[in-house]
């Protein structure tokens, strides 16, 4: 349990470790694409950490990284094919960022730093914690962007193929209509401000050390 909370706050992959910024910026334009991206990362992280941890004794030191990359790429391809088959609309929304989970530093980083050293249970806990931390962060960025730009929270839109209905919430009584937050520039600005807020409240002491 402690490991999971660590993954969300003191080891938050995006705010503290500054890894995986690319998907956080790229697919945070709607809440839906953000949390689904988060779940995909949790899935890949969980299975790659589990596999790496199981086979860690069989892998020679000098081919460690290529082997890990192939394992990760395999699970990413699995997710990619599943989403393409069952939720094609979402596959189009996530675009190249879905296969790019392969080169997401979070996944490879955890495989090297944790899964290749620790026991299976610890690796799985770590994957869950870091994955949840990532999902919460990307969802937070997406919430901020979507509310400011469109005054909505999209919970189910592309998913309606499976669930059968759409679910989009309107939040504020007045539409702020800050369209800039729907554009790439807005992604950078939102993440920059959220990171500064996070630094303000959760980090004490020397900021340069942590960033």
């Amino acid at each position: 349990m402690k490991k999971i909370i660590d993954g969300i706050i003191s080891q938050n992959p995006v705010f503290i470790l500054l890894l995986g910024l690319c998907p956080v910026l790229a697919v945070s334009h709607t809440f839906e694409s953000a949390y689904i991206m988060g779940f995909c990362v949790i899935f890949v992280l969980l299975f790659s950490n589990l596999t790496v941890s199981l086979i860690k004794k069989m892998v020679p030191e000098n081919v460690k990284i290529p082997v890990f990359i192939i394992i990760i790429a395999t699970f990413v391809t699995t997710v990619d094919m599943l989403i393409k088959e069952f939720i094609p609309d979402l596959h189009a929304t996530l675009g190249i960022y879905l296969p790019l989970i392969t080169v997401n530093c979070i996944v490879l980083g955890r495989a090297i730093a944790v899964a290749s050293k620790e026991k299976v249970l610890v690796s799985v806990q770590d994957a869950l914690g870091i994955g949840l931390g990532f999902t919460l962060t990307i969802s937070a960025v997406a919430l901020m962007r979507e509310i400011l730009a469109h005054n909505t929270i999209t919970i189910m839109n592309d998913l309606s193929n499976i669930t059968g209905y759409k679910w989009i919430i309107t939040v504020l009584p007045v539409n702020l209509d800050l369209n800039i937050f729907a554009t790439p520039a807005g992604a950078f600005l939102s993440l920059g401000f959220l990171l500064a807020i996070f630094n303000k409240f959760f980090i004490k002491g020397d900021l340069h050390e942590s960033s």
């Binding site: 520039a185 920059g192 990171l195």
Partner: peptide
Amino acid sequence: VLASFQGVPIALIIAGIMAMIFS
């Protein structure tokens, strides 16, 4: 630079401004 903006946050904000210009 404001303490909590030092490092990466200000970098991201600069990138945001550049994105506006480039678009």
